[in-house]
Design a protein around this nucleic acid. Sequence first.
DNA 1: CCAGGAATGGCACTCAGTACCCTCGATTAT
DNA 2: ATAATCGAGGGTACTGAGTGCCATTCCTGG
Lengths: 237, 237
Amino acid sequence: MTEARGRKQATESGTAKPPMREAIVEAAFQLFLARGFEQTTIDDIVARAGVGRRSFFRHFPSKEAVVFPDHDRCLADMTRFLAADDDGHPVERVCEAARLVLRMYAENPEFSVQRYRLTRKVPGLRTHELAVVWRYERTLAQYLRTRFAGRPGGSLRADVIAAAVVAAHNNALRSWLRSGGDDDATAAMDEAMAYVRESFGDPGPPADVVVVVARRGAPMWRVVQEVEAAARGDSPT
Amino acid sequence: MTEARGRKQATESGTAKPPMREAIVEAAFQLFLARGFEQTTIDDIVARAGVGRRSFFRHFPSKEAVVFPDHDRCLADMTRFLAADDDGHPVERVCEAARLVLRMYAENPEFSVQRYRLTRKVPGLRTHELAVVWRYERTLAQYLRTRFAGRPGGSLRADVIAAAVVAAHNNALRSWLRSGGDDDATAAMDEAMAYVRESFGDPGPPADVVVVVARRGAPMWRVVQEVEAAARGDSPT
DNA sequence: CCAGGAATGGCACTCAGTACCCTCGATTAT
DNA sequence: ATAATCGAGGGTACTGAGTGCCATTCCTGG
């Protein structure tokens, strides 16, 4: 015991992680899955993890927070990602930021699925998840607000697009989680983000414009065919 | 005292409201605004309201819930509204449903503004408000899901549009609340809902389509002129 | 006048979260 | 080398939210 605690892994890559955090998370999940969230007390968790009660609250601000141990880091990642590079379409950028979150879930499929089953059942965890997601949404909205600064409805656009991105991400994520992690998470995400991009066409003058040039007197079925092809995005024939 | 408690107002319209609920809410708000939310205990509230501690939790499930006393009724109103009538454009319908919520806020401007100042400052109240708003969003999404049933991306559309409506509503509501209730709440809401309708054009072919018919080899400035005219919605020349 | 039910008040209890202080081990200054 | 310091962890006691249980009261129907 003394030798296992002694070394702090100074030769590791930058972040020397305390193993106690992981021990708490693991003990908590085992108990939550076995007995249920509200049937498990903090004392149960710290007893199983072999740590002091006070240490639990040193690492997690609440009993609910232990279920979402990696979101602080992920939010920091997203913030850095958005602050880094400011060119390109804003909507594309927030869609990419949302992919960061999905990737984080996909890194630990079994953990994510277990957590999903927990949050679905326990109201307190659902509420806490809402607070977590809300921080992502506010981060995206804040970024969009700076990009839309000056435009008349900029704040409105920022809020609505951020909410749409988060909702689309959650929809794709949930369908993946419901499949038990078997489906391809990226496929559903692609469809979800495509719908967002389609809805909020980025440079967005009034609306997407399709131009079809036809001879006067051309047969109507040909015109319709060309319009449909153009709306699909095909190159002009 | 005995005579004031005696009558239950049987001659009132259907809902005979117990005055104790209102007394608790009023006492709670006075204390929250004076000392702050977390500096006020349940015992403080019930002492000021002149009721028993147990009665508080009979009317409100938590300390936070007393700050949102009318949302249960409003959510029931929205549910009934959406269940009532099922024709017309789904997007229009959820926009109207969102107006119900705004109207509820606008009925008591000073109360809504005071609550806004509280929720902005207290993290626990922000979280609780998220849970409240989430129920509205889920109700809207559930309605849209039934309306979009069968369509390929129906669930995705439902979630995204519901989130957009809620975000647009919140944007309009917040700008009204920040003005202290002085602005016209309906004006901002109209703009917000217009943006939603514009983004999710209802029957939604892929996108708005402008068709311009021109002769092959026509001068480009004429083509551009016609495209611009069509995009403005002018009748074809 | 008397059941009986609904609303209320009064405890006592569990448990989350916090404040305060102690211990131990490692690093550094003298 | 020894002492001072510092940081991570452990322990104890406390506050306050939320719940279960039971007594009381008031209101209603027989």
